[in-house]
Simulated assay, not measured.
Amino acid sequence: MGESRPETSAPTSCRDEAQAPATPTTPKAPITPRQPISLVQPSQKNKKNKPKIVRVFRSVFRSFPIINPTCKFPTIPVGLPTDTNKCSSGTRVTGTLFGYRKGKVSLSVQENRKCLPSLVVELAMQTNVLQKELSAGMVRIALECEKRAEKDKVKLFDEPLWTMYSNGKKTGYGVKREATEEDLNVMELLKAVSMGAGVLPGNSETEGQDGELAYIRAYFDRVIGSKDSETFYMLSPDGNNGPELSIFFVRI
Rank of each mutant, 00 (worst) to 15 (best):
L119R: 04
V121E: 06
V105C: 14
K114I: 11
L123D: 08
L116D: 00
R101K: 07
T91I: 09
T84R: 05
V93W: 05
R58M: 11
D83W: 00
R62Q: 15
G90K: 00
M125N: 08
S88C: 07
M125I: 02
P65A: 01
L107G: 06
N112F: 09
I76K: 09
V78P: 01
L123I: 00
V105S: 14
E122L: 11
I76L: 10
F57L: 05
P77D: 10
T91A: 08
P74G: 11
P69W: 01
L119C: 04
V56H: 08
P74T: 08
T84W: 07
T75S: 12
R92E: 14
K102P: 09
F73C: 13
E122A: 05
S59D: 10
F61I: 09
N85I: 03
T70V: 06
I66P: 05
T96I: 14
F61Q: 12
Y100G: 11
N68C: 09
E122G: 05
S106M: 09
V120Y: 00
V56A: 12
P69D: 13
P69A: 04
V60H: 06
V93D: 02
D83H: 02
V120Q: 01
S89G: 12
T75M: 07
L107S: 00
S89V: 12
K86C: 13
Q110E: 03
R113P: 07
C87T: 09
F64C: 04
N85P: 10
S106C: 08
Y100M: 05
N85K: 11
K114R: 10
N85E: 15
T70F: 12
R101M: 11
K104T: 06
K86G: 13
R58P: 01
F61H: 02
E111S: 03
G103T: 04
V121P: 06
R92P: 10
S59Y: 01
V105T: 14
A124Q: 03
F98R: 04
P81C: 05
S108K: 02
L80N: 06
D83K: 02
P77C: 12
E111A: 02
G95T: 01
S88R: 13
P69C: 08
F57M: 10
Q110S: 04
K72Q: 10
G90L: 03
L123F: 06
G90W: 00
R113E: 15
S88H: 05
T75R: 04
M125V: 01
G99W: 13
R113T: 11
K102S: 13
R92T: 14
D83E: 07
R92F: 06
S106L: 11
C87G: 13
I66V: 14
G90I: 04
Y100E: 10
T70K: 14
V109T: 03
V121L: 10
T70D: 13
R101P: 00
M125G: 03
F98K: 01
E111I: 01
P77T: 09
F61E: 14
V121Y: 08
S118M: 07
P65E: 05
E122F: 02
V78E: 15
R62A: 07
R62I: 05
Y100I: 12
P65I: 01
